[in-house]
């Protein structure tokens, strides 16, 4: 499989604070990677490193030239003061493609409509973003990422503060996108249960162990107990795994 992102002894941080001293890991084409850790453990820092918003102070982050990131930022950080409609917010992502001093062409409108249809919110196109429910807002953010036809989808806490129904629907949508559109997916969460049945690989942050990628088949109770420094049980229920 093709390696599309590689951290080589990358040192990442803000100001005087070093979040990762020497991080080495690789992401391959078609991966579904779950980044799991509590608040403040460096999950968003790692995402920012992948996207390029944060440059390494030392070491390097090597990325494939053909990467097109579809970034889904945390829903709570999207401004709800202004009356942007769902369509307008999704169209924003195509600003670079449209180019300066130009209006959206029919192809841009088609791509936006397509993204809204994939995420199941075509009926909400003319609704103001601030009127939507948490799940609908998350779908809008995913549609915005999809409107530029990405090959790498990055999601920062997509199910935070959602009810259980909306949480499952969003995770199923992400799984469908990963499989049907062959997207590489990196998903950040602080709750292992949210992602354990969807991701193929995991990174656990803020543990006593150095950050490394663990394949799903290698996850077991002993390893998880060691990572989380508490007794963890993995149970099967209706073909799905739950972490207790």
């Amino acid at each position: 499989m093709k390696r599309i992102v590689e951290f080589r002894n990358a040192k990442l941080g803000y100001g005087k604070r070093v979040v990762f001293d020497s991080l080495s890991l690789s992401i391959f084409e078609g991966d579904f990677l779950g980044i799991v850790g509590p608040n403040g453990s460096g999950k968003t820092t790692l995402l920012r490193g992948i996207i390029g918003l944060l440059k390494p102070r030392d070491g390097e982050i090597i990325k494939d030239r053909d990467l097109r990131f579809g970034y889904c930022m945390q829903r709570q950080f999207i401004d709800t003061l202004f009356p942007f409609t769902v369509f307008e917010i999704v169209m924003m992502a195509r600003t670079k493609i449209i180019g300066p001093f130009k209006k959206p062409r029919s192809i841009d409108k088609d791509k936006v409509s397509e993204a809204l249809e994939i995420t199941g919110i075509q009926d909400l196109a003319s609704q103001p973003f601030y009127n939507l429910s948490g799940g609908q807002k998350q779908r809008t953010i995913i549609a915005r990422a999809l409107s530029i036809e990405p090959n790498f989808l990055i999601l920062d806490e997509p199910t935070a503060d959602l009810d259980i129904k909306a949480e499952r629907e969003i995770m199923e949508l992400i799984k469908t996108l990963h499989l049907s559109q062959k997207l590489t997916v990196v998903l950040v969460t602080h709750e292992l249960n949210e992602v354990i049945n969807y991701a193929q690989k995991f990174i656990f942050l803020d543990s006593k162990m150095p950050s490394r990628i663990i394949a799903k088949q290698d996850l077991n109770e002993d390893l998880l107990s060691e990572i989380f420094q508490t007794r963890i049980k993995l149970k099967d229920l209706d073909g799905k795994q739950i972490v207790i």
Binding site: I51, L53, M73, M92, I98, F101, R144
Partner: peptide
């Protein structure tokens, strides 16, 4: 502002996502 109106709106609304789209 006439040339870059869309760009200014996107960067003001959501700077991080604007960056990831190549702006």
């Amino acid at each position: 502002h006439t040339i870059f109106f869309k760009e200014f709106i996107f960067v003001s609304f959501d700077r991080e996502t604007a960056f990831t789209t190549g702006l």
